[in-house]
Amino acid sequence: MSVLVYVEHAEGNFKKSALEIVSYSKAIADQLKTNLIALAIGNVSDENLTALGKYGAEKVLNVSDKKLDNFVNEAYSFVIADTAKQEAANVIVLSNTFSGKGLAPRLAVKLKADFVSGAIELPDIQNEKFVVKKTTFSGKAFAYVELLSSIKLITLTINSYQLIESAVSSKIVKISPEFRDSDFRATVKQVVRSNDKTPLPEAELVVSGGRGLKGPENWHLIEDLADALGAATACSKPVSDADWRPHEEHVGQTGISISPNLYIAIGISGAIQHLAGVSSSKTIVVINKDPEAPFFKAADYGIVGDAFEVVPKLIESIKEFKAQK
């Protein structure tokens, strides 16, 4: 018996979301009184691998093979499933990232594991039951899902578990599993990085703009505020539909769901579809000139005022605050 966590990295470095799921998996291993094993695929330095011990991984497995330099969904899921079998893992945890969404469903089929995607809390494990809370109806509700099979699979929503240090001494083991040729039918021709900014689903602070901004030429207000805060930028559906901003920035029921620590909505009225995608943000600030905008009812802090006057003042104020710190 063991808990296996698959840890993603970007060019050999673990991101915060990766350390979050190691902390999360360690808490599950503790509840089940078993060991936590971490698996990283690709080139990662021993120093970085060892650092996973700081969050509770007793054993860190690493597969490094030229064939796996690019993300190959089928081959990666084969390696994770193979490792899960070798280590007799009965709980397997991945991040609910784009790659996690590609891998985990294939693992569920390979391992005949009951699977919950997008968990937002630790599982409730008692009286032989294993129940996981997840977001449903695109943020309008939560569901408690019971997993019945002997092997259980969870993907954890980004930003939903804190980093907890529980230093253990960790042992690095290099493994070289077999591959199947048929898992390399897709060939990655090119990897395109959008920019250096934090990807929206992982961002802790998000500044978002709506139709109230009146046009793409005014987006510097959103960008300048985001820069001052060190935040990612987002937008409402009408804005991406009008091509003022790319689709990747659209948050809401039919866009991306996010759960940052701070969400600042500027010139967004707060339609139910938009609220669905952002309602799990920890703190919501709404800036809108219409005091009747429904978004104020779902906000923690509000400013009733014209974005073109309020936002530049807010940028100044944040810069002052940062300078004092």
């Binding site: 993300f71 784009f98 790659s99 897709a186 990655v188 395109v192 959008s194 990747e248």
Partner: peptide, 12 residues
């Protein structure tokens, strides 16, 4: 294909 912080262009 969408990946963290960008995309992969894949032939299949």
């Amino acid at each position: 294909r969408e990946v963290e912080g960008g995309k992969e262009i894949i032939n299949v």
